[in-house]
Design a protein around this nucleic acid. Sequence first.
DNA 1: CAAAGCATGTAAGCAGTTACATGATTGT
DNA 2: ACAATCATGTAACTGCTTACATGCTTTG
Lengths: 185, 185
Amino acid sequence: MSIKFAILGFLSWKSFSGYELKKIFADALSFHWSGNNNQIYGSLVELHGSGAVSIEVQQQEKYPARKVYTITEQGRAELRTWLLSEPELPIVRSLAHIQLAWAESLTSEELEGLLASYESQLADQAIMCRETIRRASSTNPGTGIPERSEREILIWRSIDENRAAFFENERAWVRSLRAKLRELQ
Amino acid sequence: MSIKFAILGFLSWKSFSGYELKKIFADALSFHWSGNNNQIYGSLVELHGSGAVSIEVQQQEKYPARKVYTITEQGRAELRTWLLSEPELPIVRSLAHIQLAWAESLTSEELEGLLASYESQLADQAIMCRETIRRASSTNPGTGIPERSEREILIWRSIDENRAAFFENERAWVRSLRAKLRELQ
DNA sequence: CAAAGCATGTAAGCAGTTACATGATTGT
DNA sequence: ACAATCATGTAACTGCTTACATGCTTTG
């Protein structure tokens, strides 16, 4: 469960409650995790069981008690070991490509409609990514993170830009495919 | 289970046994499914249960009996309906990006090593993709597929090229990130 | 008064993986 | 002799998802 390392990553900045981590994951689009309860709370239980994090229960007057998780030295060591492990190749899964692969039973108009719809979705997504980058570079990510190094800021922006570029490239690919199909007719 | 539609897609060309489909999926890299038994055999049971495919058991003298699956009219209709449904956005999951995001606890040399390793893996993968394309354009895919239309051939080649371009783009991104990090020092 | 936020957790399920099991046959 | 191919199937697991459950508080 690699999300555990992502959680350790956030906890290496500062301590968070499960609820806060949940929101962080829901907001961080580049992290591809939805931030659902089972995964976050479950992972935190396991991380605590293995000694990678410690828990402090904070009673509150008007709100339910919150469990604040803090990374331990062991947790930091585990995170570092993982960071140094061999990176894996990225995985892309595009159901739209599977649809395209069997578009043979569609008319040219139906296929063109499919591609147009796919392209517009990609365009929207690319715009959203660019918007996220624009906002991220003006304001602080909002989670109350301590001073971040220039290097780290560069890396985070690059990751966001990679995501935007992916959707832009995919869109360009669709455009060129549409052009080629038009030529064929 | 969208793999069902991919199975129906292959069966729309010609009838196959589960064993053959398994091999097809294992070979078709652009399809991101590993072609493991549980998925193929399980999906075929479900497709048969829902009436999308019919089964013919062929007894053989020297080898175990094989179940040959044939798409039904209902199966063809289901496939077509799915082909016309709204395409979904592609999903990318890159663990390497998560590693990078918390590279803060690494030295510049360690980070550079990580990036170099990631880049070389991407380069290898891109070469493999290009090789697949080269082989696909010279020979027939090898599954004994009937005559394919020009349009279909174009689409399949485009999908393969999309995959190759993805790894090449990712590699270019890593190269530029490495350059930026070198500048920063 | 309803909706959203705070905060935790559980249940049920889908999609996908590796590994195991059987058993004859063919190639090295 | 050992491994690979043919051919089917099952067991056990990981990772991830939606939806449900509770209950108090703040905002519109």
